[in-house]
Design a protein around this nucleic acid. Structure first.
Lengths: 221, 221
DNA sequence: TTCGTCATGTAATGGGTTACATGATTAC
DNA sequence: GTAATCATGTAACCCATTACATGACGAA
């Protein structure tokens, strides 16, 4: 009955910070914006929302979301429950944003943390990126060591699997290197709300191809 | 009290097929050979072993493992429990090996399945590789679609995260392409026990650098 | 003799999914 | 009118981890 997830909680607070939403929409954003890394179901989302309300970090409002402006005025409309971040919730989220340490750069957390780098101070961004990098380098060292010990006893496929796994990690390290360099270079602000057009957040190297827009079917298969 | 994992069960059966082992060693191999993808703890391993014994797929033997030859003869040695695959267990594993379908190529399963490709028939290998590839391509399509829809509303970091995620998937697809090509090219046997030196399992493209052996500390940090 | 690692386990807890139940709204 | 999708929830289960408890053995 507690449902204190960490990742889910963080993501929900982060998304609601941008704008109030109801559960259904929240879930969609969770599985696209933060996509690939995690997909949550209603079975975890709704209970989580409940506990966040219980904490005083969220309040439920009857459907008065911007897009509902018209419909809301009409009678008998089934009340979509819109969740809005409270002041306490905002404060709590700031604290979470400021945290560094393993809970920021381990596999389960890093993705979400990165997704909200737009609201994160540059110092924290740096610590998280560097933390993750050294975590991965540690992992690489172990992999190399274990590979050196067991190379002969392994069949081709197991070996290929490890090689590919290691390359994946190496690739992420290179990615982190670029990001860290960008952060160092782009010496601008502590950056809140990067929606703000007056400030481009870092010097992120973008548009290296790969994302040819290719309109196809809807999100949920 | 059931502990029917799928992944863990499969991996345990697969490793024990190669040679009998006790739990402790099993766990180490689990976290290196099949490394990166999953790490299991005793809290899941031992109960799993119990249920596998219950199914009749494993038998417990008092410590008579090869390396224990000397020690075993001595009195009062604490009996390491060595687990050995039974005939039924072997049969069951063959069945698991032959299975194709989502349970073979979804994220949680693919790694382990690949790790035991050495014991898998070429037809099944092909189906699994192709299944995974089309799964990933499906995923790519969704990502591209959702990106096309939301590109403007996203901040730089979220965008960068998605770009990197997509590139990762694209990279795995290329990897699968190479593997599939190799499988097609290396027209050799149904391949059991690739330890056998008389048969190199496919035409796996190896040694593209990346794995400079670098002796360092032991497996468990 | 104490520390590290080998070795085996259990109970409590965590964090999530699946399947189910319900009903409103929209598009065809 | 009927199918899809929007929308909210709950209960049962799943798979695994953490922390704990226990103890033997080898080396410094």
């Amino acid at each position: 009955m507690s449902r204190r997830s960490g990742v889910l909680e963080f993501a929900v607070l982060g998304l609601l910070r941008e704008s109030p939403m109801h559960g259904y929409e929240l879930r969609k954003r969770l599985n696209t914006s933060l996509g690939v890394f995690r997909a949550f179901s209603y079975g975890s989302l709704y209970p989580c929302l409940k506990t966040l309300v219980g904490q005083g970090w969220l309040i439920e409002e009857p459907g008065s979301a911007p897009e509902d402006a018209l419909a809301a005025t009409l009678a008998g409309r089934r009340a979509k429950i819109v969740y809005r971040l409270t002041a306490e919730g905002k404060e709590h989220f700031e604290e979470l944003l400021a945290q560094t340490g393993p809970d920021a750069w381990e596999d389960e957390h890093f993705g979400v943390r990165f997704a909200f780098f737009g609201q994160t101070s540059r110092e924290v961004r740096m610590r998280v990126l560097e933390g993750r990098r050294s975590r991965l380098e540690e992992r690489l060292a172990k992999m190399r060591a274990s590979l050196a010990r067991t190379r002969e006893r392994l069949d081709d496929y197991t070996l290929e699997l490890q090689r590919h796994g290691m390359e994946s990690v190496e690739r992420e390290v290179r990615w982190l290197n670029e990001l860290i360099e960008s952060e160092r270079a782009g010496g601008r602000g502590a950056s809140r709300r990067s929606h703000d057009p007056s400030e481009s957040t870092g010097g992120l190297p973008r548009d290296r191809g790969s994302s040819r827009p290719d309109p196809s079917d809807d999100t949920t298969k």
